[in-house]
Design a protein around this nucleic acid. Structure first.
Lengths: 309, 309
DNA sequence: TCAACAGTTTGTCCAAGACAAAATGAACTC
DNA sequence: GAGTTCATTTTGTCTTGGACAAACTGTTGA
């Protein structure tokens, strides 16, 4: 009843759903409406997607996450490549303009080639050189952006991103653990909404605030809103902080934050950071929007100023 | 185009899919075949599942994971409860018979009430008392089993399990990090197969082996088989170790391990541990089956005996 | 600059049928 | 007994084409 793609060099629809994040319904309706993808069929009439079409679907998914509309991108490969290259090159040059303490190209190559040990060693070295906060706010921020762009250019795949995430997590958790502190104020509860799978942002915030003497507790990713509220009350937290990746639907983020604010008692502040909530200050007046990792520290100092004595 | 369940106290089919892990197709076909669930319909004819039915579905899901068959459990609630209680009570008493250094009931209560700080503190305390290896092999093993049974009894839900996992991860990664070592032999690559979501086993193995001087690199969960092989070669690993939870299909585990063994060069050993591969020594002669966390250390010593000089 | 409106796009859901992979159980062998 | 082989049932996934509401677009008017 599983659909192992073993037969040939093609993937069944369930595998494509997993690999691309596009639902089976969406894949079928695109085929009907736009004529792409156009999978072959096996003996049973089931769709089999050739690898190159799956690659193209992954590319399309990225462009959609970037804000493009399906009618525009589910078309000719040449135009897409043009759009893609425009955006990617733009990102590339701006990032390349920043000087940095790290050889980004060499680092990306380590990720691409699965050189796990090298990867861990260079992260560890940068951490020692810069200290936890600068490491998170500068180096990891830069690396995340670079990894994202490499992914956008199709140079990296899911397992490479997993490898990177895993090694960064190891380094960060270890470093954060050595600052451990279970009595400092404020006490922050960190987590993400149910549809958000990206949890690195939580650890990076923790890396910024724990050295400042705050107490951070992470619930991990994908916590239902009601559970966030009940955990915040039960744990007597001062602040609930949410993280949103760029892929998270803006509307869902805003509605969810408003709902959560309604569920939280007056004494508990609500913070939100990440690409999906940038510049949404006006629409979220009850929520402290965190613009950057350094801004998280600023927000912490504000809280202390408001709660001293 | 999302399906927010906001309207009433019921959930749309997509929300039920997310909450129960049962696919939309499965939910619809159960309704057709077994007459349960029997959701009401909104103005548009879309299914709306009352909360109590979703709860029952969650319960059914647990029973299925336990090995029950749908035809048996997608029936009357009374029978299910009977089955459930039988199994749970059995587990409870056997586990309760073991003496331990930790007040399991109090610990579970902390998880249930989201007392994150308390949770972390007691884990930390046990770690200091026992040392990393005994903490992992004894205490965490016991706690995992207890959490699993509490989940089975319906006392815990997804977010509580997340909370537990997150705190254990924090404590373990921190402790492992302090043993850090990037030159010791053997070098192990740790990961899971694509359909395996449970990654705590990997960390626990790491906790056993790193203090013995081994070098462990985790790729995280859900790595495609081909990527495991290429990462193992690229990183010059001595051993690839896989972890399988009890929910993982046995057949898929065995086939996947055989495939992976074929892809690995002769010099790289393949280890597998976890509930799904227990007692499968005969069917997997090329694979070193790890029966317990202590057995992982034994396997390590065997490897060293075979590679000394 | 913002709000309200109409028009289009787009993802999700529905129905009932079909089928292959998995589980079961019976018959058989070592 | 333990392990194979085979036929039978169970069970999850995939199929089709139609339908519709939420989200997005772009226009109008204050």
């Amino acid at each position: 009843m599983n659909s192992p793609p073993k037969d040939e060099q093609m993937l069944a629809i369930a595998a494509v759903e997993r690999d691309t994040g596009l639902s089976k319904d969406t894949l079928r309706v695109w085929e009907r409406r736009y004529g792409f993808p156009c999978p072959v069929r096996d003996d049973n009439g089931d769709r089999l997607y050739p690898f190159d079409q799956v690659d193209k679907l992954r590319l399309i998914r990225r462009l959609l996450d970037q804000g493009n509309r399906p009618a525009r991108v589910v078309g000719a490969s040449l135009e897409e490549l043009a759009n893609l290259l425009d955006l990617a090159d733009l990102g590339k040059t701006t990032a390349g303009a920043q000087s940095s303490v790290i050889d980004v190209a060499a680092f990306l190559e380590s990720v691409r080639l699965h050189r796990c040990i090298e990867l861990r060693a260079s992260l560890q070295q940068m951490l020692l050189k810069q200290g936890l906060q600068r490491f998170a706010a500068d180096t990891l921020c830069l690396l995340n952006a670079e990894i994202g762009q490499a992914w956008m250019r199709g140079e990296l795949d899911v397992p490479e991103e997993h490898l990177y995430t895993e090694q960064v997590q190891n380094v960060l958790r270890t470093a954060i653990g050595s600052h451990a502190n279970i009595s400092g104020r404020p006490r922050l509860l960190l987590t993400t909404f149910p549809d958000e799978l990206h949890g690195l942002g939580l650890l990076m915030v923790e890396a910024m605030l724990v050295p400042e003497g705050a107490t951070c507790v992470s619930l991990g990713i994908q916590t239902p809103i009601q559970d966030i509220a009940s955990a915040a009350v039960a744990g007597e937290f001062d602040i609930v902080a949410l993280s949103f990746s760029g892929a998270f639907p803006v509307r869902q983020a805003i509605d969810g934050l408003k709902d959560l604010h309604r569920l939280l008692p007056a004494g508990i502040e609500l913070w939100a950071g990440g690409a999906a909530v940038q510049g949404k200050h006006k629409r979220l007046e009850q929520v402290r929007i965190i613009d950057s990792l350094d801004d998280a520290v600023a927000a912490l100092l504000e809280w202390r100023a408001n709660h001293k004595g």
